[in-house]
Design a protein around this nucleic acid. Structure first.
Lengths: 231, 231
DNA sequence: CGCGGCTTTGATGTTCATCAAGTAAAGTGG
DNA sequence: CCACTTTACTTGATGAACATCAAAGCCGCG
């Protein structure tokens, strides 16, 4: 984990286009003064459940997982987040402490902004606040939809769904390297590790996918989509 | 469904304390001008999926369900909402059309506020926006937590969980009349109607609850909590 | 009064978690 | 760098949990 405080480069940050578009340069400067970019490696903990929320953070590059243990200590992955997903948005405005954890799945860069600066901006620039709300709403909609999707399918459908998710939403490619383990896939779509592996193998035998360790290639997308839809 | 446009009574509306506290009287007046209260009866459709979002709405009294069909047309209940839950907050700021439906479970009163008035208020009064964000965050946190809870339990645990939910969160009483059918409970906690009924019967035989149609009395709360926790 | 939806119980079979056991891969300390 | 430990992956066998199917009673409503 490396920290860097550069001269202000927020003005042309990709995020400005997405959310900070309504901030004028002088407001961007306020953010710049307090912002901090931190790099993480695969497996590094970015946020630990229970930790105090005193900064607003978002993913600049890389991939992370949000997760939470259930009453029995088993972890559930709430969501895989990629850049432009405001990862700390879930509880940043409602709680004083995080109620989930975040770890890096990749080399990632996270941008930290002082929470009070953001709150001041919301108070002084309503358009900015509105944009932030849209982003929040959007994020939650996606999580809820994904949940309904997964809960309405049986195991083969869930695996098909998650493979399509990685191919279409994360990598834009029919061949990709899974950023998570079989166990984590199980935690993400609510099944056991053994069955994740079993169904991977079935799909391989049925020539729907090719498997090479963590590298997956989808060779029959239509079939996968049919399985995902049919459940 | 009856509509009424009264003289402004927003100033002492219960909601003001919860969310509109940061609005000064003149701002409340803006809301009052556009607001409309509408009564619904059990079963009435309040919002239909696909409908345009042009008003901000919240529950003044009563009980509603938010639901959405999955790919196969089976309905999933996202949440049961009670007063002070901002029911339209889910997609009101991210989408131009609702992506779920809402129906009344009770006699309910819904307050409609012109969406643009709200948006203007957010822009002009940042504190108000911030408060609204907190509310949104909070709502989603609850939905996500409930989901993890339900997904980590087996059927008896889910039934226990939902009975405790109604007793503690909705009615504050160990005896209450279920506002939804067995089928809807199934849609809420992801199981079949038959199994909802079967487990109700088991709990009755085990003298954990008494059942009289839709009226449920919890007679062994500790046991119920143990079942809910243990899964 | 009869029809459709809700409720209930039982029987049956499928889906899935669990257990077990072994291989491969990856990290750890001497 | 190699032995050692741990963690990830894989497959099979078994039984439990659950959905599905079936049939009948109940209730509200036109």
């Amino acid at each position: 984990m490396e920290t860097s405080k550069k001269a202000c480069n927020c003005i042309d940050c990709g995020f400005r286009a997405a959310v900070f578009e309504n901030l004028i340069d002088s407001e961007i400067d306020i953010i710049c003064l307090s912002k901090k970019e931190v790099g993480f490696n695969k497996g590094d903990v970015i946020v630990s459940k229970g930790q105090e929320v005193d900064e607003f953070l978002y993913l600049k590059s890389g991939l992370v997982k949000l997760f939470e243990p259930d009453a029995k200590g088993k972890e559930h992955i709430i969501r895989i987040a990629k850049p432009l997903d405001f990862v700390s948005l879930l509880s940043v405005f409602s709680e004083t402490h995080y109620n989930f954890s975040i770890t890096a799945l990749n080399e990632t860069v996270v941008c930290y902004i002082d929470l009070n600066s953001i709150k001041e901006l919301i108070k002084s620039n309503g358009k900015f606040g509105l944009k932030l709300m849209e982003k929040m709403s959007n994020n939650f909609d996606k999580i809820i939809k994904a949940n309904i999707n997964i809960n309405s399918k049986q195991l083969r459908g869930r695996i098909a769904y998650i493979l399509i998710f990685f191919a279409d939403e994360i990598y834009n490619s029919s061949i990709f390297e899974l950023p998570i383990s079989r166990k984590e896939i199980a935690q993400l779509i609510n099944m056991t590790t053994e069955n994740v592996i079993r169904i991977f193998s079935e799909f391989r035998k049925d020539e729907i996918i090719k498997i090479n360790g963590k590298v997956i290639e989808i060779i029959n997308k239509e079939m996968l989509e049919k399985i995902s839809k049919h459940g």
